[in-house]
Amino acid sequence: MIITRDLTKRFGDFTAVNRVNIKVKAGEILAILGPNGAGKTTTIRMLASILKPTSGQVVVSGYDSVSHSQEIRRLTGLLTEHHGLYTRMKAHDYLRFFGQSYGMGADQIRARAEMLLERYGLGEAVDLRLGQYSKGMRQKLALVRALLHDPSVLLLDEPTSAMDPSSAHLVRNSIDDLRRSDRAIIVCTHNLFEAEALADWIAIIRRGEIIAMDSTDQLKRRLLGNPVMELRVASALDGVLDLMPEGVRTLASGVNWIRYEVEDPGRINPIVIRTMIEAGIPIVTLAEVERSLEDLYLRVVENGRGEVVR
């Protein structure tokens, strides 16, 4: 649904985005991560047909972003980094204007607006001027604006950055719902927890280039190595380490614990458990050591290059 081919954008001598290739199908979420100034917003603006690529191509739902920019804008919901609301307006007036810009009828606008405002907890704020909204409310209204015309493609730049935890949770759930209703979604975020929770695919962009892209699990595996397991037992591990099956690489151990790396936990871990039982060592826990997306992100961004898979 969203495809870019060698997407490049230059501003004079400065290359903001360099040969970016991404593909997001309906029902998928791609999270674009990257430091400030990495080219995330420029990429989003090209996908939304606001900026024209210097070279390369953007195709959204079969439309080329240069020759069919209006069609793409009609199909796309864009949540911009800055909400830029018209502060003297009220929510319904504001949404009516955007609905009309998207060619929606009055009844359709009213129905969608009421439903979305209720859903995002803004139903009681409709009589306030937008200038009176809190930062989080403004962000939610901006999201409502992006969703108003029921777009099949969503481009969300920092969708929860100004929200309190419960609002952010609500928004994340609704993004997840939208994915399930077959939208193609791209989320730019600095919130790595959010990216990990939502995205099917992660792309890390640095200095305009995608330096790593894959599913979260695959990226972790490729860039942080095999899963690491931690086994804790009720008695001392003396002599047991020698009994560990082939395929286990011990990373560290203590009196009653061992941390090891394993390529195929599904096959090896049952063998480890059986070995422990046969040796008469009661197992307390066996769990994968949590490796966060943050570790991955920092490693990729600091080292400069990961591995682009898609």
């Binding site: 939304a48 804008r73 796309t76 830029g84 018209y86």
Partner: peptide, 17 residues
């Protein structure tokens, strides 16, 4: 003014020509 108030981008993202 729209640019200063950062409200230009949502406007430019609409299908208005």
């Amino acid at each position: 003014g729209e640019r200063e108030r950062l409200s230009l981008e949502p406007l430019l993202a609409t299908p208005l020509s």
